[in-house]
Amino acid sequence: MRIAIVFLAGMLASASAQEIKMPPGLERLGAKAEESVDVTLDGPLLQFASRVLSDKDPDEARAKKIVAGLKGIYVRSFEFAKEGEYNQAEIDAFRAQLQPPTWSRVAGVKSSRGGENAEVYFKMATGGDIGGLVVIAAEPKELTIVNIVGTIKPEDLADLSGEFGIPKLDFGARRQTSKQTPPPAPPKSKGKEPE
């Protein structure tokens, strides 16, 4: 009985930490994807992980700072061999959870030519902090959903979107730096809508 109560409490804690529910169909996408990432870190496991983050490694030190106020990190990322493998209606249903005034859509880019969409949502907290972050990046052959639950300081967000974890190795002629090239979306698309 006690075990059942503890288990139920754990489930409720986990559910409340996540708040925003990942689309149920995502679980099935793993079977279709060429590559998939499925990260669910919350509660004790997240703190467990943060305890072994090194202060000497710059990325890990930044991660430690970011994780301090977090309750959960959920990432689902899929890369498909062909287009149309995921259901847009499920993404729309997921997006429908991110309603104002709790959530604000702070950025969104859309490319009608490349079919690449990316959106960033913030949940505002007191004191100018961010109470949660959701990123939806949907491309014809790739889908990534990130849901970060908990308090993020604006400066930590800058760290995260700055130099965090940029791989250093290049592959000879194929690699070009971001300064030499425009970002991946086609530049002449009229469908882009910066916000």
């Binding site: 590559e35 890369e79 791989p167 290049d170 592959f171 194929r174 690699r175 070009q176 090239t181 425009p182 970002p183 991946p184």
Partner: peptide, 13 residues
């Protein structure tokens, strides 16, 4: 592998 690795790195080919 080269194509996928480049995609991962966010490069433009």
């Amino acid at each position: 592998l080269r194509e996928k690795a480049s995609r991962f790195l966010g490069e433009v080919e």
